[in-house]
Computed example of a mutant assay.
Amino acid sequence: MTKARMHELRGYEVGPVRAGLRALTVKDDREGMLEGTPYLHRRMSLLRIGTAMAADPHLYVHDLDVLRADAESRLDEWLPRERVRARLTSGWLPGGCTEPGHTELSVMWFQTAAEDPFARLAAIVRPLDWASLAGFVPFED
């Protein structure tokens, strides 16, 4: 496994904070789905998103309200096939924090295979408020 130093990481502007990309995974969201409908796919995706958000309180899901509204209106259009998840870290610390560590934010979205996930991530995170979404992670010995 290759280790990268913070200055070697791909950087992103998240509001006024500079964050480094630690991980980016792209998965086929319909993998294992033998049959179904766009509505069923959206409902199953929302269930997986709910589980992921419960496990990671600092997970931001891009267009979550749109996904929920589309599922409620029983939209008959498939979600883009790729589910992307990125993990960003920053040396920015909340005010008053004296413990050594960093802050971390995970971001999830859906896209087509033709889209560049790195460019899409930049567009998604640029307007976000790192201070309200990211969580503090203390350094471990």
Rank of each mutant, 00 (worst) to 15 (best):
M6W: 03
E99W: 14
L24K: 00
P57E: 04
T25K: 02
Y60F: 13
H58M: 07
D28R: 02
D63T: 02
D76F: 15
P100N: 00
V84T: 12
D29A: 09
H102Q: 10
W109Q: 03
L64C: 13
E82D: 11
V137M: 04
P127H: 09
T89S: 08
E104F: 00
F139W: 02
E104Q: 07
A86W: 06
L133N: 04
E13I: 11
P100T: 00
A69W: 15
A114V: 07
L47C: 01
A119H: 13
L67R: 02
G32D: 04
E115C: 15
D65S: 15
M33K: 11
S90T: 02
P127A: 10
Y60L: 07
D56K: 07
P94A: 08
R126V: 02
A86P: 12
T112H: 13
L121T: 05
P80N: 04
K3A: 13
I124D: 01
R30E: 08
R30F: 01
E115F: 08
A114H: 14
V84D: 03
V137L: 09
A123H: 14
V107K: 00
F110T: 02
R48G: 11
L128C: 14
F136N: 05
H58I: 03
P94Q: 13
P117R: 05
R42T: 01
M53W: 02
A4K: 13
D29H: 01
T51D: 10
W109I: 04
L93I: 03
H62K: 13
P57Y: 01
L64S: 05
Y39C: 10
A54F: 07
S106W: 06
Y60E: 10
R68W: 04
A19F: 07
L59F: 00
G95W: 15
V84I: 07
L105Y: 04
Y39H: 09
L46Y: 00
V125W: 03
A113R: 15
G36T: 04
E35V: 01
A114S: 14
V107M: 05
H102S: 02
M33V: 03
P80R: 01
R10S: 11
L93R: 04
